[in-house]
Amino acid sequence: MKGNIIKYGVVIALVVSSGGVLMNVSQQVQTAEREVKRYDRKLAAKEESIRVLKAEWAYLNNPARLELLVSSGLSLSAANSMDIISDISNDEESNKEPSVSSPVFAPANHVNSAPLHRDISYVPIPRKSPVNIKNANFNNNNNGGAR
């Protein structure tokens, strides 16, 4: 009899616990499904707003509009037919020694050591400002008046 009680006890415990596990799993599945649904909705909303933004970007990049902006905001003009050449290193003018006089505040050795960039995409990195910039007199008008 005692053996039977243990036997039943074990069976019931197993049934209850497996039921519990099953329910837990089903809960987890449902939570995950809800999560998936939520992400799907979010994704659809994001995709839709990406489409809207793309359309707006295309609209803002309308060449007529850009042309208007460039003409009003930048001091650039359209390129001439002779402005584009096939290879810049073959161009005689760019091969000549630069005839530009050295900048006012840059020390002379800077100009000599600076590599001559033929690559048009080269953007000069701003250098440390010269030390004597504090002492330099910018106010030429005043000076002239005093003289």
């Binding site: 390129a79 402005d83 073959n90």
Partner: peptide, 15 residues
């Protein structure tokens, strides 16, 4: 139009 094309497509003038 050809002048614009040259600038847009980068057609070299020294050819």
């Amino acid at each position: 139009i050809v002048t614009s094309m040259a600038a847009i497509l980068g057609l070299p003038a020294d050819k």
